[in-house]
Design a protein around this nucleic acid. Structure first.
Lengths: 199, 199, 199, 199
DNA sequence: AATGAATGAGAGTTCATTCAT
DNA sequence: GATGAATGAACTCTCATTCAT
């Protein structure tokens, strides 16, 4: 059961995550977050200390959400590794599609967005994004292992290399979708992901 | 022969391109650009009208530079399409390595950086990045065609799909390099690019 | 009892009203107002949102002051309508005279000043001035009614027409005073005001 | 016959006069004037030395135009002094009406506008306006003299006082028209002018 | 604990004016 | 002599952050 303090904390993080996604870290100001989250500015600063720290919290929040909504969900739905890979792409695509249907433009990957913007200026943010990607790799590593087991992969795969490559192509896919403002671009890169998996 | 005006113009664009790369669009202010380029702020605004317009000019500048230094250079150096693909990756890697040796951290792709930061807020910037990617695709399309000719590709390739996929993996590679602050990550994704080429 | 916020608010409005009067709306910058009022610029903008909004507030401030110091005071001092009209002119003249004695030049009517400068560019300012003039007309209307009652006016007067005419001649008087840098010009136009009242 | 230089001079003054009227002295910038008048900025500065000097020239220009188009025209049209007074008001009203029909808002009197805005900051501008008003008074003085001659005025009029009063009510009329964005307000104050004339 | 009010520093942009060719 | 290019100073407004209650 959430305490009132924890609720406020969550509300701030969720609001910030949403706003950073809709625009960008630097384009969103602390007032907007406070207004939308219905918290006083000083309260926000008591919870997070700085805007940068809040950004780190949003990265962790996105990580937890992506893990649950995309990765765990896809793993739980089907046993076949290729289906699982496909399931991850489908779920991310569906989320982008829903936003697109609401008239919003394609915002891409929250990790890539804040990394591109802030990595050089803020090591803390870079580290948080790196940790998030590391935290997603185990799913790809599992998929790679199973791809060999069922004979989809032609040869023994290097788990590190494959999971890194799959993270890369997923990020590339999100960039394409954002560039062209076209969620379908995500799905189109599933083919490359499968090539990687086949080895 | 460059007129004085053209020289000033170039100096502003090059300085802005460099600074936006070292930090980010929003983190760099117009004063910094003026100081470094040795131009008066009003002069900058007579040349570009707005910071956003200057950003668009830097995107076009990066495009011209990348085309010449990476793509045209790689195409001119060797005839084999796989070597050419490899040449592109090598050249981009070398540039990142040089910066790394100078103690700078890995800044990734200028197109991806500004796109991630500004695509939603500035359609003009998004369009400029999209145009840049489109302008690079012909090189990949040519490589794909030749890959079939020499028998590297297993089957007839869809030029559009392949070039899009190769742009995606290049962007993903740059993201990885930036995330891990490790230029080598670029080269590691050349393997995926080759998989795409093989089909 | 004024809260601290209300005090700050008042200090800003009074300072701005004074400075706008001494120079003009556009000639005074927000920094000058802040310096003189001893307020931070961000504080000013939290209170008023824009320089234009502050200008509107100064117009309302002048209205309240004029109502109290000139119109209510003149009405309270004497019952005879002609004396009251005269009292209004006298009070306004005295104020200008005091400034003149302090070596300041004749600044005219704050409503006319900002209207002349900003009416076309800022409907909000024009509306505020119009409202101020409307708010002063009831005094003239009352004077006109009583002028008939005591037999000063030759005939039944149209309250709207007379009050409008009295506003016009007062404004004309202020223009003359400012043009010639001579407060006496205000008093000289009292004669015309009386003609209007006589009908 | 106008030399090319004199033509340029005229074009600049007329353009500036128009733009200052449409907005205000400070709201119009030198670039706008140059663009609209099709002259180079340095050329403008060779002709006038400063924006303020140009403003003085526009005041003189307005004076010449008003004298010819309103005052001389009204005097030439009819011999009766009351008709002449009426003719002046009618002509000014018609000009405002024409602008109103073109969808422009009521800009008031150019002398009053720039005086209200700049009198305190620029003695040169104040002097130019004062001179303009002085230059118009002879017409009113003539009308006042004739009003006595034909028996319209009840008594011998003080030419100075009457002409000053007529200038004042004309200015007051223009202020009303601008405040209410209603050209008719000009005509409504003709009644007061007649009262002044009757004495 | 919570908040309304305040703040120093700095953002992008524009100005009237002058230089250099 | 005419003009395209440049400039220093100043503009309104906003930021992340902290104080005082």
């Amino acid at each position: 059961m959430d305490s009132r303090k924890a609720q406020t904390h969550r509300r701030i993080v969720e609001t910030a995550a949403e706003l950073f996604g809709l625009q960008s870290y630097q384009a969103v100001n602390v007032n907007q977050i406070c207004d939308r989250a219905n918290v006083n500015k000083a309260t926000l600063y008591q919870h997070f200390g700085s805007k940068e720290a809040l950004a780190v919290a949003t990265i962790e929040h996105h990580f937890e959400r992506q893990k649950a909504d995309f990765y765990e969900a896809a793993m739980a739905a089907l046993p076949n590794p290729v289906d699982r890979l496909s399931g991850i792409y489908q779920r991310i695509y569906q989320q982008h599609l829903a936003r697109s249907d609401r008239g919003e433009s394609c915002i891409g990957c929250p990790f890539v967005n804040i990394l591109s913007e802030m990595a050089v200026g803020s090591p803390a943010i870079r580290d948080a994004v790196q940790a998030a990607f590391e935290g997603l790799k185990p799913y790809y590593r599992l998929i790679a292992r199973d791809a060999k087991v069922i004979g989809y992969a032609n040869r023994e795969l290097d788990g590190d290399a494959v999971s890194s490559a799959l993270i890369a192509i997923m990020n590339g896919a999100m960039i394409s979708a954002k560039t062209e403002n076209r969620p379908e671009a995500i799905l189109e890169n599933l083919e490359t992901a499968k090539l990687i998996l086949r080895g």
